[in-house]
Simulated scan of single mutants.
Amino acid sequence: MTSVVVLDYGFGNVRSAVRSLERVGATVELTADPRAAAEADGLVVPGVGAFAAVMKGLTAVNGDQIVERRLAGGRPVLGICVGMQVMFDAGDEHGEHTDGLAQWPGLVDRLEAPIVPHMGWDTVEAPVGSVLFEGIEDERFYFVHSYAARSFLLGTDEPASSRFKPPLVTWSEHGGRFVAAVENGPLSATQFHPEKSGDAGAQLLRNWLTTL
């Protein structure tokens, strides 16, 4: 069976993530042990709450190094909600600027919408060729967030003839467009919660497991 570590650093809806991954066929361990995280087929980085608090929790268990080493070796990582946001350069919440893991350029900041947070079921705009959204392109997913990346810069300046494969970016909208998911080599992430998104979320997790 496919082995997955859900990174345990004191933040995130970890029990729901563990149960959801087990239901779709993975063997799951909840731990911050670096060796287990390195050896698992997949690593999930969950996250809820504030960007700064999540980064503090991650660095306290060397989660930043764990993620960096896995990605350097081409080992799959899936970020969920704030676990996706921290993959960007930085977050700006309540005027507090916090450095992220800097896997992608860009800033996570507050949504510009009449109602914040963005909470509930919403559609997404998945790109052609998406593996995560194969067969569920028209489904709704469960969001609960006040902040997001509202642009995605990596790969946008690559010429059409480039051998570099640009990331696949999925978008959604709440007062304006924001990044709902990214597929970028071994690093994938979703702003919404697949573990709270019913059958569609379960299928997305199955799709991710096929990449491991």
Results as ranks from 00 to 15, higher is better:
Met1Pro: 13
Thr2Ala: 06
Ser3Thr: 00
Val4Ala: 02
Val5Arg: 02
Val5Met: 02
Asp8Lys: 07
Asp8Trp: 05
Tyr9Leu: 06
Gly10Pro: 02
Phe11Asp: 12
Gly12Cys: 09
Asn13Asp: 00
Val14Trp: 05
Ser16His: 09
Ala17Pro: 08
Ala17Ile: 12
Val18Leu: 03
Ser20Cys: 04
Arg23Val: 01
Val24Lys: 00
Val24His: 00
Ala26Ser: 00
Ala26Cys: 03
Ala32Asn: 11
Pro34Gly: 00
Ala36Arg: 12
Ala38Cys: 04
Ala38Pro: 04
Ala38Trp: 09
Ala40Met: 00
Asp41Gln: 03
Gly42Cys: 02
Gly42Lys: 00
Val45Thr: 07
Val45Ala: 08
Val45Asp: 06
Gly47Pro: 05
Ala50Met: 12
Gly57Pro: 01
Gly57Tyr: 00
Thr59Leu: 14
Ala60Asn: 10
Ala60Asp: 11
Asn62Trp: 11
Asp64Phe: 00
Ile66Phe: 03
Ile66Ser: 05
Val67Ile: 10
Val67Ser: 01
Val67Arg: 03
Arg69Ser: 13
Arg69Thr: 11
Leu71Ser: 07
Ala72Tyr: 01
Gly74Pro: 03
Arg75Ala: 04
Gly79Val: 12
Gly79Glu: 11
Val82His: 06
Val86Pro: 05
Asp89Ala: 10
Asp89Arg: 14
His94Arg: 14
His97Trp: 15
Thr98Gly: 02
Asp99Ala: 15
Gly100Arg: 11
Gln103Asn: 14
Arg110Val: 09
Arg110Lys: 13
Glu112Lys: 14
Glu112Cys: 13
Ala113Arg: 00
Ala113Gly: 01
Pro114Val: 05
Pro114Ile: 05
Pro117Ser: 07
Trp121Ala: 02
Asp122Pro: 13
Val124Ser: 10
Pro127Phe: 11
Gly129Cys: 07
Ser130Pro: 08
Val131Arg: 15
Val131Ala: 15
Leu132Lys: 11
Glu134Gly: 13
Glu139His: 15
Arg140Val: 13
Arg140Asn: 12
Phe141Gly: 12
Phe143Leu: 07
His145Tyr: 05
Tyr147Ser: 11
Tyr147Pro: 08
Phe152Pro: 05
Leu153Gln: 15
Leu154Trp: 12
Gly155Asp: 07
Thr156Cys: 15
Glu158Tyr: 14
Pro159Ala: 01
Ser161Lys: 14
Ser161Asp: 15
Pro166Ile: 07
Leu168Val: 09
Glu173Gly: 14
His174Cys: 11
His174Ala: 07
Gly175Val: 02
Val179Pro: 08
Ala180His: 13
Glu183Ser: 07
Gly185Leu: 02
Gly185Ile: 01
Gly185Arg: 05
Ser188Ile: 10
Ala189Tyr: 02
Gln191Glu: 12
His193Tyr: 06
Pro194Asn: 10
Glu195Tyr: 02
Lys196Arg: 10
Lys196Leu: 03
Ser197Ile: 03
Gly198Leu: 04
Asp199His: 14
Asp199Ala: 15
Gly201Lys: 06
Leu204Trp: 07
Leu204Lys: 07
Arg206Gln: 09
Arg206Val: 03
Trp208Leu: 11
Trp208Tyr: 09
Leu209Tyr: 01
Thr211Asn: 04
